[in-house]
């Protein structure tokens, strides 16, 4: 299989998996730590990409990907030195979270394979794109907190569960209606700009607004690549 489609597939699946995982974390009061999110993204992306590129995309590769990525990340957790004070913060280093990560990855993998089908509708497209955009939005907020001098512990409070769910719903609605636009670049731009304006209306800076255009625009364009 060529390189581009597996790469796009892996990016979207990994981002979507991270979205579900981050939502589960805040719902169970487990810390969402920027360092671990970055490592989790790297490990899961490499797993999904290599399997999609060298083996293929389908049911068996999906099951292998869903097991390999979370298991590899669990090994990292067990062996690496903690970067967050575990007496103050609960993180997802228990074996149970391997199952949680695997289920999240399997769900988004299945969703992405649905989007790849020619007759897939706007529903699956909007769901995948909004899930892929959420960790970018969340990650940007965590990055800004760290950039402005916040501690690692402060980044874990970047978004509450309700704020994250509201953001997800807003992203989904924008992606759903933008998918009606025939030209994907116009659809991505309009959705991204509307999201940027909404963010700035709620207090984001101009730079944050520009970032929001890409936060939604990039996953949108990548998801349209899957359908081609």
């Amino acid at each position: 299989m060529k390189l581009w489609k597996p790469f796009v597939f892996a990016v979207l699946v990994t981002l979507g998996m991270n979205a579900l995982d981050m939502l589960f974390h805040v719902a169970t009061e487990t810390a969402v730590h920027l360092n671990y999110v970055a490592v989790k993204f790297t490990i899961v992306f490499v797993s999904v990409f290599l399997i999609a590129w060298l083996i293929g995309i389908g049911r068996t590769p999906g099951i292998v990907s869903a097991l390999l990525g979370p298991t590899a990340f669990y090994i990292y957790y067990r062996v690496a030195t903690p970067t967050l004070d575990r007496s103050l913060f609960r993180i997802d280093d228990a074996v149970l979270y391997v199952v949680v990560h695997a289920i999240a990855l399997a769900l988004v993998y299945w969703l992405a394979t649905r989007v790849m089908k020619k007759d897939s509708g706007s529903l699956s497209f909007a769901t995948l794109t909004s899930l892929a955009a959420l960790p970018l939005h969340w990650g940007w907020i965590m990055f800004v907190i760290k950039w402005t001098g916040g501690l690692d512990g402060d980044t874990t409070k970047a978004l509450t569960l309700s704020a994250a769910l509201i953001a997800l719903v807003v992203l989904w609605v924008l992606c759903y209606f933008a998918s009606w636009v025939a030209n994907r670049w116009i659809g991505a731009s309009v959705a991204g700009i509307v999201f940027a304006i909404a963010s700035m209306f709620l207090g984001a800076t101009a730079i944050g607004g520009v970032a929001r255009v890409f936060v939604l625009g990039v996953p949108y364009v990548l998801a349209t690549e899957l359908k081609r």
Binding site: I55, V64, T81
Partner: peptide, 25 residues
């Protein structure tokens, strides 16, 4: 750092595992 080495090691293990899967395929 230690964590960088662990990450590199895990990524190499993933490559090894996928290679075995490719062989079996």
């Amino acid at each position: 750092r230690h964590n960088d080495r662990v990450l590199a090691g895990v990524l190499l293990l993933i490559i090894a595992f996928v290679s075995i899967c490719k062989f079996l395929t």
